[in-house]
Design a protein around this nucleic acid. Structure first.
Length: 497
DNA sequence: TGAAATGTTGGGGCG
DNA sequence: ACGCCCCAACATTTC
């Protein structure tokens, strides 16, 4: 057996259980030396923002801790990943480098370059998929191209993902190693826990991810189909940041969910499992689309949207960012984002629809704000979600699908639990008005202690009118095939206008 | 993974 | 008893 060490280059699979990269490295024999490299070049124009970086720091600390429990540790390096890996292979006399594949444009170009460079230097390179049930190149349409519609993608994905996905492998540990070099340094400092992490109740790292999965399967999976769209209820798994950094893998999640469903006689359990797995499919669809259309991080998938008449003003965007649009469910979401680095998915859709359609702010501006503030910021999912909402992406909602923030609020937060949590100044308003304080009679506002325009803003746009204008805007780029919407009346019943 | 406008239906009040 | 109207409820169409 070759006693020369292997480098285990952690990228977005920051875990020790069900990690095919670690498994491959350990199977190969010889010492395994774990390393993480902070290289902004891997991220291209989309460097992680402060929220995501905070999580990463915590996650690396956690991974290092887990490794140290068995006498190993995580080497951290800064700089170009290729150079750092080459230097480390020399310092350790490593013969091979193992890493987890990534699929974002910059990262996948980078890893190909690095692989080629290492091979020319005589280093063996092994990569593996640790992030997806189905990698983006494994699925193609009849015509051999990438999918652009979810439903057929989902069918194809299910055949592969559910049919042949092997059981996850248990937690593995690199054996204790006496480092052959002295100058490798761990720079992960035990920095103060970020406010977002603390206030959001998060626990970055593999242990936190597994706890979250177990709690979700036990307490919330059964109710998932009903509860997942209600932001006032903790009905979602909240695994998104853990998944993004690979503190847990989709195979572990699918296994836990299916095991639960198989062990139950209740028919609802199977339905719940399918509903949740479907969300994993959406996640992988986003990766599929970005992988095959790398320009979509900055440009619409549908080219006709390059001519869309976006609004130029900044005021709407700024009010949206602060959570001061005057539409409670939108503002609650934006404040949840600022306070915890996370936002319920239903509310993400509502808030994104409001920005791109009611305010007609370019989707990229919203995508950049989410990118900066989300602890689960993920290039494929963020890009996909924004283009989907804006109507310019894959399987996009037709542009005329415009969310009504009042109706959405009443439908999914009927008791106003979510709005009251994040907008306490409205908390004494009765349910009837909680999603439309601007329509509440004066005495109801007075009784609740709300002075509109002082305690809570008046709506910055009239939704009914904004909707008409958005429909006109889409008609203007539709090549004259679409007729302009009828009517165009103002609602006439809006106190703020 | 919409909303609003428009069309249809059927029960009940009422002359 | 009957036709007419109103309108809520639901379905369909359109944006």
């Amino acid at each position: 057996m070759d006693a020369r060490p292997s480098l285990l280059w952690f990228r977005q699979a920051l875990r020790l259980a069900d990690n095919p990269v670690l498994e491959a490295a350990m199977t190969r024999g010889g010492p395994v030396i774990p390393v993480f490299i902070l290289d902004s070049g891997e991220e291209g124009e989309w460097r992680p923002g402060p929220a995501s970086s905070t999580w990463l720091t915590e996650s690396l600390t956690s991974l290092d801790h887990d490794l140290r429990e068995r006498g190993s540790r995580l080497i951290l390096r800064r700089g170009l990943a290729g150079e750092a890996l080459l230097a480390l292979t020399r310092e350790c006399d490593a013969r091979a480098v193992f890493f987890d594949r990534r699929y974002e444009p910059a990262a996948s170009v980078s890893e190909r370059d690095i692989e080629r460079m290492l091979i020319t230097r005589g280093i063996e390179v092994v990569s593996a998929n640790a992030s997806l049930l189905v990698e983006p190149d494994r699925i193609a349409t009849e015509a051999g191209g990438p999918y652009r519609v979810f439903t057929p993608f989902h069918r194809a994905w299910q055949r592969i993902a559910i049919g042949e996905s092997p059981r996850p492998v248990p937690r593995m540990m690199p054996a204790p190693v006496r480092w052959p070099v002295r100058d490798v340094r761990i720079e992960v400092d035990a920095c103060a826990r970020g406010r977002l992490i603390r206030d959001g109740g998060w626990k970055p790292g593999e242990r936190g991810a597994l706890e979250r999965l177990r709690a979700f399967v036990k307490a919330s999976l059964t109710g998932y189909p009903n509860d997942r769209d209600r932001p006032g209820i903790g009905g979602t798994s909240r695994l998104s940041p853990h998944l993004h950094f690979g503190e847990i893998g989709p195979r572990q999640i699918a296994d836990a969910v299916q095991t639960r469903a198989a062990g139950s006689s209740a028919p609802g359990e199977m339905r719940a499992a399918e509903a949740y797995l479907r969300q994993l499919a959406w996640r992988e669809f986003a990766v599929h689309v970005l992988h095959h259309h790398p320009h979509t991080t900055d440009r619409p998938l549908r080219p006709e949207f390059a001519a869309f008449p976006w609004s130029r003003g900044r005021a709407g965007l700024e009010a949206w960012k602060r959570g001061e649009t005057g539409y409670p469910v939108v503002d609650a979401g934006m404040r949840e984002l600022l306070g915890t680095g996370w936002m319920h998915n239903r509310v993400r859709m509502i808030a994104a629809s409001f920005l791109t359609k009611d305010l007609r702010v370019p989707w990229l501006a919203g995508a950049r704000w989410f990118w900066e503030k989300l602890i689960d910021a993920d290039l494929a999912n963020n890009t996909f979600g924004w283009q989907w909402t804006a109507g310019c992406g894959a399987d996009a909602a037709p542009y005329f699908r415009i969310f009504n923030p009042v109706l959405q609020g009443m439908r999914y937060d009927a008791q106003g639990v979510y709005v009251r949590r994040w907008i306490p100044e409205l908390s004494r308003l009765p349910d009837r008005w909680i999603h439309r304080p601007f329509e509440a009679p004066a005495d109801a506002l007075a009784q609740a202690g709300v002075r509109l325009g002082r305690d809570y803003p008046k709506p910055i746009v009239d939704h009914a009118r904004a909707r008409e204008e958005a429909l006109l805007a889409i008609a203007s780029i539709a090549g004259g095939r679409r007729k302009a919407p009828r009517g165009g009346r103002r609602s006439g019943r809006h106190p703020a206008h």
